[in-house]
């Protein structure tokens, strides 16, 4: 895998940690080096990309990797918490993102989840505009969702939550991670805001929390989106 960050203090620590977890790590310290390493041969299985780098920023590198064709999973280390920045990161085709400072084991968990998905040979979910899960159809670019023929009416946050859930199916998503995804921060006291949005989604999907077909609560840990998700061509 490729790790791109201009801060050597970070790469010097993260590299060995990832290697100890079984990854074969190459590092790059600026945008052009990162792009060369990502598009050259042998191609990395996954790229962890910092956004602010000299010569070319991470988002530009990501754009060019995507333009190059082959879909390599990319995790963006976004530098700012503003929701528009995050939305842009996802629209440009990042598979996931993580705010600094992050828990290294969280990063490793997300990397493993992405590799699990890419090794199945199935098309990556992040690149698909329309996703299907049973009777649910989500148009990600239009930000609309339908259950059978009925369109779901959701608040913007619930919509963003649904988008994240369908692109990360069958993954244990902690409340803190969902807080970070939806608001860009973790709540100091409770993550009730996430619970409220999940409740709203469950109501809209007609899900029974006691016997969930859509969103499962993993007690003490978080939530999991249960159904299989496919990209619609």
């Amino acid at each position: 895998m490729l790790l791109a960050d201009d801060d050597t203090a970070i790469t010097e620590q993260l590299g060995p940690l990832l290697e100890r977890s079984g990854f074969d790590v190459r590092t790059a310290h600026d945008g052009t080096a990162a792009l060369a390493a990502a598009t050259g041969a042998p191609a990395p299985d996954l790229v962890v990309l910092d956004v602010l780098m000299p010569h070319m920023d991470g988002r530009e590198v990501l754009r060019r990797i995507r333009a190059d064709g082959a879909w390599i999973p990319v995790i963006l280390l976004t530098q700012v918490g503003e929701s528009t920045e995050r939305a842009m990161a996802l629209e440009e085709g990042a598979d996931d993102y993580l705010n600094k400072p992050f828990d290294p084991y969280e990063l490793i968990a997300r990397m493993r989840a992405l590799l699990r998905r890419s090794r199945t040979g199935l098309p990556p979910l992040a690149s698909s505009r329309v996703l299907r899960a049973g009777a649910l159809r989500v148009d990600r670019t239009a930000r609309r969702a339908w259950l059978a023929d009925r369109e779901l009416v959701l608040t913007p946050k619930a919509g963003a939550l649904l988008d994240y859930l369908v692109t990360h199916p069958d993954e244990l998503l902690s409340r803190e991670r969902l807080m970070e995804v939806l608001w860009g921060w973790e709540s100091a006291s409770t993550t009730r805001a996430v619970d409220n949005r999940v409740a709203e989604l469950r109501r809209a999907l007609g899900d029974d929390p006691a016997a969930p077909a859509w969103i499962e609560t993993v007690t003490g840990e978080g939530y999991r989106f249960v159904p299989r998700v496919e990209a619609e061509r």
């Binding site: 801060d7 620590q13 940690l17 530098q79 600094k100």
Partner: peptide
């Protein structure tokens, strides 16, 4: 911005 990178590096160092 200035606090994030050092904090990340410290956290990583501790994990190591």
């Amino acid at each position: 911005h200035e606090l994030k990178n050092p904090l990340t590096a410290i956290r990583l160092g501790l994990a190591n």
